[in-house]
Amino acid sequence: MSERVAVRKTYKLFIGGKFPRSESGRSYIVQDSNVSLASRKDARDAVVAARAAVKGWAGATAYNRGQILYRVAEMLEGRRDQFIALGVSADEVDAAIDRWVWYAGWSDKLPQVYGGANPVAGPYFNLSAPEPTGVVAVVAPAAPALLGLVSVIAPAIVTGNTVVVAASPAAPLAAVTLAEVLATSDLPGGVVNILTGKLTETVPTLAAHMDVNAIDLTGVTDAELAAELEVKAAENLKRVLRPAPADHDWYADPGVTRMTVLLETKTVWHPKGV
């Protein structure tokens, strides 16, 4: 009997819940695979998809968003071997799964911890509540390939933002595989969009895009590029998360900053009276 010929996977982009190739028709070879080489147009298309998803995702109940993030953990648990086959350590996969669970629980707690009633000196009802800032561009760290990626996506989306993620150019397979997890987790299309390819091609477009509200530069290791992106981001006053230090411990308690930087606080006043 002849040996079975394996079915290989085509690694594509993840935009609006679908897996298109780059509109440019280009790919590059990395991790022994052909991977889509996203163009500036793909980046803009991803922003359109992310913007279209904001209303539904930000408008979903916190309970609903929490369940969907938990569902991502369930799906990831079932696909552990797929990531291990890509060279991700078992410990890292475990940590990534646990991180989804951790963030899932934040959806309906952060507004209580981070908002609340303010005791103003007058006869007024005064309430502050956090809201998502909108569309967030994210540059994922190269390593750890899966845990780093999950650690930048989950805090952005748990509060109702949608993201366009530029995957690590050197290790994009974990990102594309995570997209397959997300696509089967009841996450609405467009909430997470993933681009593979060169950071210098897609990220400046995202940093300068007037319909992007915030940019997370965590994965940018070139200080000059980071500064250039921050300058572009200033044009519409994007909220900026600066690059992570090289020795950042991704296994440590992440804290809430990654969530709060991507939130707006809205405060509503109303007089009390009869």
């Binding site: 005064n126 502050s128 606080t265 809205k266 405060t267």
Partner: peptide
Amino acid sequence: AGVVWANTFNKFDPTSPF
């Protein structure tokens, strides 16, 4: 908008984020 005044306007307080 960061501050919404309902049936009032231009109210400020040190405890109220702006």
